[in-house]
């Protein structure tokens, strides 16, 4: 079976110009991920788990190594791919779920959730209907659907965020502590949805504060260890 992702020798460090220092996050990470596989990233706080996820998503630029993503058109190295290609893949098949929502002012919760469908060409009434179904599934109260998430509590914002991130099936899903600050009902809804997506062949890489939440989904684990902290370099 063709993998979804082949990561080779991935290395990330941050050059902090104002300090004249290079901070090492992780180095030489390699793994392969197949359709429907769930990979758990483990390790102590600050070891670079979220940094690895963000590097895979290209929010962070890797220092060295390759992130071979096997797209239907052929493989592409996300470590060096053109920005427009990365943007295209994010719209089409690579999703990122965080605990934080960047809420835009004056946009209703149901529109926030429906947006990925609208961008994919689904008509507004149909997209909104699906959005409402997912808001209900994650336990967002009906009277909040037309309200602006900018004013919601952290937990409610996160539910909106999850509904939005999971409304379209992706090929690869990066999960950065999606269960943090969720109540039991929403957590159960999330696990149900992830299980469903996994059965459909979606590959997932996740960081979880309580991996027990997703114990039944995990196929493999990678443990990250602390890197020797910093170099003083001319950066």
């Amino acid at each position: 079976m063709t993998p979804v992702l082949t990561v080779e020798g991935l290395t990330k460090s941050f050059d902090m110009h104002h300090l004249g220092q290079r901070l090492h996050a992780f180095s030489g990470i390699s793994f392969t991920l197949h359709p429907g596989e769930f990979l758990l990233l483990k390790g102590a706080n600050g070891v670079g788990k979220s940094t690895l996820l963000r590097t895979l998503y290209r929010s962070y630029l890797p220092r060295a190594g390759h992130i071979w993503y096997h797209a239907p058109e052929g493989r592409i190295d996300l470590a060096r791919a053109a920005d427009v290609d990365v943007a295209l893949l994010r719209r089409r098949e690579i999703g990122f779920v965080t605990q934080f929502l960047i809420a835009r002012p004056r946009v209703a919760a149901e529109e926030v959730v429906a947006e990925p469908l609208r961008r994919a060409g689904v008509a507004a009434p149909e997209a909104l209907e699906q959005a409402r179904r997912w808001l209900a599934e994650f336990g967002v109260k009906r009277d909040l659907w037309r309200a602006y998430p900018t004013t919601f509590s952290g937990g409610e914002q996160q539910k909106v965020n999850l509904a939005r991130a999971l409304i379209l099936p992706q090929r690869l899903l990066l999960l950065d502590e999606p269960t943090a600050s969720l109540d039991a009902g929403a957590r159960a809804a999330l696990v149900r949805r992830l299980d469903e997506l996994k059965a459909q062949g979606v590959a997932m890489i996740g960081v979880f504060h309580h991996p027990g939440d997703v114990a039944g989904l995990i196929d493999r684990e990678i443990e990250l260890t602390v890197q020797e902290a910093m170099d003083d370099v001319a950066v």
Partner: peptide, 11 residues
């Protein structure tokens, strides 16, 4: 800073 490949998927 970061040499990118030419677009491959964006046609």
């Amino acid at each position: 800073l970061h040499a990118q490949l030419p677009p491959q998927l964006m046609t």
